[in-house]
Design a protein around this nucleic acid. Structure first.
Lengths: 304, 304
DNA sequence: CATGACTATGAATATCATTCATATATTTTT
DNA sequence: AAAAATATATGAATGATATTCATAGTCATG
C-alpha cells in the first residue's frame, strides 16, 4: 500500500533525477530506493521510472505521482505549521548567522516565505563577521549558523544542508580559459577577488593555495554581483559556488573552471543548539531550506 | 514520522468516534490503533484524542490532522483513478446485482458519483430477482453482487462492506410499542410487509420466525417508502435496516424496536470474480462505497 | 578496454508496527 | 452496590517488511 515514504522518495527522485542522489536526499541507501520503486511498480502494475542511460526519467505515471507527492507533502507541512500554532509553539526568534556570503542569494527569498508562514517568529539576519559563530549560539546571540563547520560539540546539532562545488570564475577572454582544470599554480600571478572575510574562511585559499604555498593578491567586494563585475572587467579571478554564478556563466558574462582534478567542494550545515533545534518553526525552516535549495540550485548534492 | 497509515486511522477515528471501531475499519486490532495514537501524540508532543467516558473525542490538533487526512486521502484516490486512465485500465463494465433492496438508498448517489469518475465504465444495475447471483458472476452476466452471502467459492472474492442491525418497524400507536424488544412470538398475528422476494431471502423469517415455527401473513411492496407507508397506516409491520428507517423514526412517522435480545444483524459483502476484483475501477468503487456508507449511514459497524 | 558511476537484485538484517495478554477505566445491568 | 459488559491503555513478544549488505549487471568515458 502507498505510504508517505514512497511519495517522499518519489519527490526526491524527481528533484535529483537519479536513484542514488534521491537516496541521499531521503537518507536511505540506493538499494532501498530501488526496492521502493520496484514495490511501487508492482503495486500499480506499470513502470514508474525509465532508465535513460546514465540517469533515469519518470514515466507518465511517475510524473502524476510526483505531482501528488508535492501537493500532499506541502499540505502536510502546512498543517504541521498549523499544529505548532495551535499548541502555541509558533513564536520565538530565528536569528541567522551566515558564514557563506553567496548563500544570501537563496536565503533571502526563503526568509520572505518564512515570514509569511511564521508571522510571530522574530526573524533576523545577524550581520557582521563572527570569528566563532557557534559561541554566538551558546551565548544566545543567534539561533542558527549556516556554514561549513560541523565538528561535534556538546549541545550543538549540525543539520546537513547540501554539498556544492566551488568553481574558479574568469573573464571570458582570460588566458586561463584554455585550461579545463585550474591548479594552485595557475593562481600565482592573479588577483583573487573575494568577500571581505579572513583568509581562513576562504576555501580556495585554505584548502588549495595555502597548502601549495601560493599567496596571490587579494581584493574584496561585498556582493556577488560586484565580484563578478570585477572578474568580468579583468580585475582578477574569483572562486564561487557553481549555483551562484550559473546565470552569469549561461549568459557568457564570465566563464567557470574546475579547481583541481576532483574539484573543490564545500559542505553546508545549519547548526543550532540542541534545544532550539527541536522548535517547530526551526524544523520547518530547515525543511523548506532544503526543499527550495534542491529545487532551485543546480548541481548541489545531498549530504550524509 | 507521519505516514499515510496514521492518516487512515485518524480518518477512521473521526468517522467512528471510537478506537475499537476505527481499528475494525482499518483492519487492525484496537491495540494497534491505540499504539499509533500514542506514537503520533509523542511525535507532535500534544494530545490528539481525549477520552470522553465511553468513547473518545478528537482534540483541536486531532481535528486539524483529520482535515488533512481527508484531503490527502481523497487526492490519492483521485490520482489513482488518473493512473488507471493513463494505463488504459479505466474501461469495462460494472453491472451490479443488489440482493439488499434497501441498499438502493445509498447505492444510487454512489453510482452518480462513480459515473463522473469513470465515464468510460459501463455502469448498470442488473434488475430482477436472481436465485443464484454468484452464478451470474461466473456466467459473465454481472460484475458485482452486493449481498450477505459470503461462503467460500473458488474464483470468487467477498469484500466485506459493513454490519448493520435490522429493526422491527411499527406504527407509532401499535400495541407492541410497549415492548422494548420484540421476539418471534410477537409477529404471530401480524402482517409482515416485505420486498417481493422469496422467504429465504428475508433475514427475519429465515433466522427468527421460521426457527420458532411462526408464519405470519405477508404483503409485499417494491419500495422502502411504500413499505413504510403501509406500516404507518397500520397495515402491518416490517423489518428494515436501522439506517434505512432512521429519518422516518426521527420524525415519529414510525417507531423501531430491536428484534431479539442481541438484535438481528446482517452482514453485507460485495462479491466479484477474482480477476474482475483487481480492476482499478472496481477497487475504487468498493473503496468509495465503504467511505460513503461509513460517512452517511448511522449505526453500521466495520466487518472483519 | 579498463575504469568509474549508476542501478538492480537476492539474501540477511534490523527496525518497527502489530498482536497478545493483561490491567485500568467507565458505563450498564441486576 | 456489586457485577457484568464495554472500551481503552500498556508492556512484552511476535511478525512483517523496509532497509542494508554484498554483488552483479549496465552504461558512459578517456
Amino acid at each position: 500500500m502507498l505510504e508517505l515514504r514512497h511519495l517522499r522518495t518519489l519527490a526526491a527522485l524527481h528533484e535529483t533525477g537519479s536513484v542514488s542522489r534521491a537516496a541521499k536526499r531521503v537518507h536511505l541507501t540506493q538499494s532501498a530506493v530501488s526496492h521502493q520503486i520496484t514495490a511501487l511498480q508492482s503495486h500499480y502494475g506499470v513502470p514508474i521510472i525509465q532508465r535513460r542511460g546514465q540517469s533515469i526519467e519518470l514515466t507518465d505515471v511517475g510524473k502524476h505521482l510526483v505531482v501528488l507527492a508535492e501537493k500532499v507533502l506541502d499540505e502536510i507541512q502546512a498543517t504541521e505549521r498549523d499544529l505548532a500554532k495551535i499548541s502555541q509553539q509558533a513564536s520565538g526568534s530565528l536569528r541567522i548567522v551566515l558564514e557563506c556570503h553567496t548563500c544570501f542569494d537563496w536565503l533571502m527569498p526563503l526568509m520572505d516565505e518564512f515570514r509569511q508562514h511564521w508571522p510571530d517568529v522574530e526573524l533576523d539576519l545577524v550581520s557582521g563577521f563572527h570569528s566563532d559563530p557557534v559561541k554566538l549560539l551558546e551565548e544566545g546571540g543567534a539561533d542558527v549558523v549556516i556554514g561549513s563547520d560541523h565538528k561535534w560539540q556538546r549541545g550543538i546539532v549540525h543539520h546537513p544542508l547540501f554539498r556544492f562545488e566551488i568553481l574558479a570564475v574568469l573573464a571570458p577572454e582570460h588566458p586561463l580559459r584554455k585550461k579545463r582544470i585550474l591548479h594552485a599554480a595557475d593562481f600565482a600571478d592573479e588577483t583573487l577577488i573575494t568577500y571581505p572575510v579572513p583568509e581562513d574562511r576562504i576555501d580556495l585559499i585554505l584548502n588549495v593555495l595555502k597548502p601549495a604555498g601560493i599567496h596571490p593578491q587579494r581584493r574584496t567586494a561585498e556582493l556577488t554581483v560586484a565580484i563578478l563585475q570585477l572578474v568580468a572587467s579583468r580585475r582578477g579571478v574569483a572562486a564561487l559556488p557553481s549555483w551562484g554564478i550559473k546565470n552569469y556563466v549561461d549568459h557568457d558574462y564570465v566563464i567557470a573552471r574546475r579547481i583541481g582534478a576532483n574539484g573543490l567542494w564545500s559542505d553546508l550545515y545549519a547548526s543550532a543548539l540542541k534545544e532550539t533545534a527541536s522548535r517547530p518553526y526551526l524544523r520547518d525552516f530547515l525543511a523548506t531550506a532544503r526543499n527550495t535549495c534542491f529545487a532551485t540550485l543546480d548541481g548541489i548534492i545531498p549530504l550524509e
